[in-house]
Nucleic acid binder design. Structure first.
Lengths: 226, 226
DNA sequence: CGAGCAATTGAGCGGAGTCAAGTGTGGTGG
DNA sequence: CCACCACACTTGACTCCGCTCAATTGCTCG
């Protein structure tokens, strides 16, 4: 892992991200001041549970998996972060220690912002605080969604849900490309890879065709009531 | 449900709560200005998913269950709130609509704060924003814990965990009283009531004795490695 | 063309949900 | 004071979903 300064395209990605776009311009500039970039190969560990954390991470490209370890070594995914998403804001306001492990699930490029500085900016500028509040609420809702899905839905239902969440409203049939390996999707949905595979099989009879990473939906209705 | 003004003991409970105690004094006073109180019987619904939400709720006494409904009518608990805990901050920064249902799981007294006002205070005073940030991070972590436990632990392990989380560190044997009905605990742990019952049975062989709502632990070691 | 990894499929098992019956307990009223 | 009822909880029997392990297929890239 090498650490470098930001290129101008890095800056562009950051400034267009959901989080930065809600940030006051001056604050955004200030944070970019001390920012660095690191590159990682697939399976690189970014940090481990209980590690002290000094940076907030932003995915510039690639994919980061956040997971916890069970006593037996099994892994449970908490979240998966894609381009433009922010990791580690939680810890900034807790005890500054990671609550989970983070691992690159693809070759990835990561921006590192000084969390001290961000914290300080939030304490000076309510605009920054506001952006952080919205970010946290959004994350919170996603985690709650995940928890509810785990408890209410079967594997095929979860997968159907996931597919529908990628469907533009109003379209009856459509197709899209999975943004990552099926392995990762399985983790994100709280399933073993085999279970995901079987779920796709089951959904075939509802008009879902899977070829490689491309998902094709023929009958949206059938999916919705699954 | 009747709505009243705050009594002085209500104010005391609020001001001692985790959230208010982190709030600047003037802001706390300002919020209490427009606050009201409502009382609810067991099973009363406080709000439903997708309801527009104008108030942030604080539990003064009793218990509030937050849950989502599956298509088949099954319920999945997202969180359970006890005295002093705050409900509905998330929605304040999203679309102001409830992401779940809330129900009194006991006869309960609830304080209602104007979320508009709280939101405005957060936009003026970074101290308020800071308190909200900490609150959200704390909630976020709890939800993540929950998700990870669901995915990593069996029913007896979850129960063992719950018991240990109520154990003062360093004590080898101890006992405590469940703060609510087993029914509610089951929901909180994502279990059917029967599964909770069976889990307690299993844990008996590790030195857990359950009598009514009182849990007694004889051998902490045994629990920890369950 | 072959090596290696991703994904699928099959067989078997175990955990937890469901339904149904039983046990206990606290509260009410005779 | 006791009988009875209501309700929380427990226990049993059964089913089913999803995990595990293992074998196979299919891809991708050297």
């Amino acid at each position: 892992m090498k650490t470098l300064r930001l290129t101008s395209s890095d800056r562009a990605i950051l400034l267009n991200s959901r989080f930065f776009s809600r940030l006051p311009r001056t604050a955004a500039e200030a944070i970019l001041e001390g920012a660095h970039v690191s590159t990682h190969e697939e399976h690189d560990t970014l940090f481990r549970q209980d590690d002290p954390i000094d940076d907030v991470l932003v995915v510039l490209s690639g994919l980061v998996r956040l997971y916890r370890l069970g006593k037996d070594g099994r892994e449970a995914d908490i979240a998966v972060f894609q381009k433009g998403e922010v990791i580690g804001v939680n810890t900034m306001f807790l005890d500054r220690r990671a609550t989970a492990n983070a691992q690159a699930a693809e070759p990835s490029i990561i921006a590192r912002l000084e969390s001290r500085k961000l914290h300080q900016l939030a304490a000076e500028d309510t605009g920054v605080a506001q952006a952080l509040l919205e970010l946290l609420c959004h994350h919170g809702k996603l985690t709650e969604d995940c928890l509810a899905e785990d408890r209410l839905l079967t594997a095929p239902q979860r997968v159907a849900n996931y597919i529908l969440s990628h469907c533009p409203i109003g379209s009856e049939s459509f197709s899209f490309r999975l943004p990552f390996q099926k392995n990762v999707l399985a983790g994100k949905l709280g399933l073993a890879p085999e279970a995901l595979s079987r779920a796709f099989s089951t959904l075939r009879q509802s008009g879902v065709v899977v070829k490689g990473r491309v998902i094709e939906i023929r009958d949206r209705q059938a999916l919705e009531q699954f």
